[in-house]
Simulated scan of single mutants.
Amino acid sequence: MIIESIDETELILIKKEDLTLEVSLDNVRKNYARDKDEAHISDLVETLAEYSIEIPGNWDLVKNDIYISLQPNDFESKEFINVNITKEINKVYIHTGNDRFSLISKNDLSKWNITELDLDNQAKKKC
């Protein structure tokens, strides 16, 4: 992994293989300030080191780990499925397998041979 830069919003851009990860340290800072526990930092590093964009290709294996999440509109999620909810908030879909959260893309839908409506219906079962 290589830290490429830090943007104007203090997101750290990390290059890992073909990916560029945008990492915010806000929660790690808050948790460390609260607990004085360095594990918050090492946990983040471990998560980044183990991160993979690859979600299993079998819908039956992933469908029970699909959820809806909300995120600010100012987060660029170009290739990921997102729906504008308000001026500030978008709805995105995530997979929670392997103790990590992965945003779901249109490529994932193709791989699973499902539609956005199928994805939305599955995610709503968890609400």
Rank of each mutant, 00 (worst) to 15 (best):
I6M: 04
T9K: 12
T9Q: 13
T9D: 13
E10R: 09
L11I: 09
I14A: 02
K15A: 07
E17T: 10
T20P: 02
L21K: 02
E22G: 11
V23T: 07
S24K: 03
K30C: 05
N31A: 12
N31W: 06
Y32E: 07
A33L: 12
D37M: 08
D37L: 09
A39T: 15
H40W: 13
H40E: 11
S42V: 10
S42L: 11
S42Y: 12
D43H: 14
V45Q: 04
E46W: 02
E46Q: 13
E46T: 14
L48Q: 06
E50I: 00
Y51A: 01
E54P: 01
E54D: 10
I55W: 03
P56Q: 09
N58C: 00
N58H: 09
D60T: 09
D60C: 03
V62W: 03
K63N: 01
N64Y: 10
I66G: 12
Y67I: 00
I68P: 01
S69G: 12
L70H: 01
Q71F: 12
P72S: 07
D74L: 06
F75P: 00
E76Q: 09
E76A: 11
F80L: 06
I81K: 06
I81Q: 07
N82K: 11
N82R: 08
N82G: 04
I85T: 03
I85H: 03
K87Y: 02
I89D: 08
K91T: 11
V92C: 08
V92K: 10
I94S: 09
H95E: 07
G97H: 08
G97T: 04
